[in-house]
Design a protein around this nucleic acid. Sequence first.
RNA 1: GUGGAUGUAGCUCAACAGUAGAGCAUCAGGUUGUGGACCUGAAGGUCGCGGGAGCAUCACCCGUCAUCCACCCCA
Length: 409
Amino acid sequence: MIKIKPQTLKGFRDFLPKEVKKRQWLINILISVFESYGFEPLETPSLEYAEVLRGKYGEEEKLIYEFETRGKDKVALRYDQTVPLSRVITQYQNELVFPFKRYQIQNVWRGENPQKGRYREFIQCDADIIGSSSPIADAEILRLVLDVYKTLRLNITIKINDRENFKNMDKKYVSAIDKLEKIGESAVLSEMVDKGMASEGAKKALSSLQKKPQTAKIKEILSVLKKIGADMGRIIYEPTLARGLNYYTEMIFETVAQNSSGSLCSGGRFDKLIGKFLPAGRQGSGVNVPAVGFGLGFDRTLEILEEKNLIPQLKSSSKFLVTTFNKDSKDKSLEVYKKLRDESINCEIFLDETAGLEKQLKYADKKGISYVLIIGPKEIKEDKATIKNLKTGDQKTVSVEELIKQFNN
RNA sequence: GUGGAUGUAGCUCAACAGUAGAGCAUCAGGUUGUGGACCUGAAGGUCGCGGGAGCAUCACCCGUCAUCCACCCCA
């Protein structure tokens, strides 16, 4: 055997138990909020036929992980969740309930150059409503986002805009304006000039944009939001917000945390995207399929929660460690362990009956197990067990039945 | 794709042109029935890889690979 250097692929990560617990905690919260609004889970395969993904992402297509299987199938790793969603919608038209409200939390892969907070394998959390063009759908999405962050106890603001505001502007200038928050007004203006706009024109375009009043659509959405009890103080109309204009059609939004830049969660309405993926010849082909939704930056959200200390301390799932004192007492330990298991109490038994107590206590301490059961000659004589609370250091000797009674509820 | 930085013990990092050291982690002791703290000790490195200059280098030069950061781009 050749000794292999332990190493993960560039942009790919291992998650050790501590981290996985935090990630699972966040995922569970997301799921419960999504489901409280009637969104249903969807999962799609990691691999798709390459042709399903081809021609859908423009220049980004070169970042798709694509390869050939041994059976010569051309396949590609999931690049986002919107394209697979589109495929699912056309493939299962009869089985889905429309408007289709689905959430999807799965890994996606992109062959990008990794940098801070950006990886080649990362989890994406999407929630979308397919098949409704009602402003109520837009409002529900926004309220859902507010609820997610409220549940996480994170102070956020949602910036909202209407793509309508950029109707007459060339895409290249829009992408410059999108950076306003990040690089400032003068840098934006000089970028617009670099891209071909006259200096005066750029100034004028920017300032007229900044003065644009709310569009009818935005007014309507905000009015619904108010009626359904959203925290309106967290929503700001921001006419310069551009955000991935390539496929959004009307409302767009972006969520930012207090005192920090960079968005945590963003989305909008994309009525023309899904229809594009419908295969020709099928019913609905070429037709607009209205859709509104968002993608939540999982890693970024977790990072901020960590920063603000909003992740609860997550304990070991084992409540007890049953120690094995020595070879002679081993059977008694096994018996106690069995009784705890019979009662479905979370516990584990130390897996080396030759190890000293010290080692076993250390193990429990490191794993964050709350209680240790010590069963040695003394205890066996009395048919009892000593229970030690590792946090307080208190310990007492009781019968197993008493112990179970005390901890069973 | 472009630019910058860094590769030395399992991890985080020192040092010095004369063949490497600390902290943490590991293991063993400090009264073989008690963890987190402390003390003592041990083990652990072809100094990323290849080449070059030099009496000699981990240190200097060139190349290469890898990682990180930023830009570009962007869900």
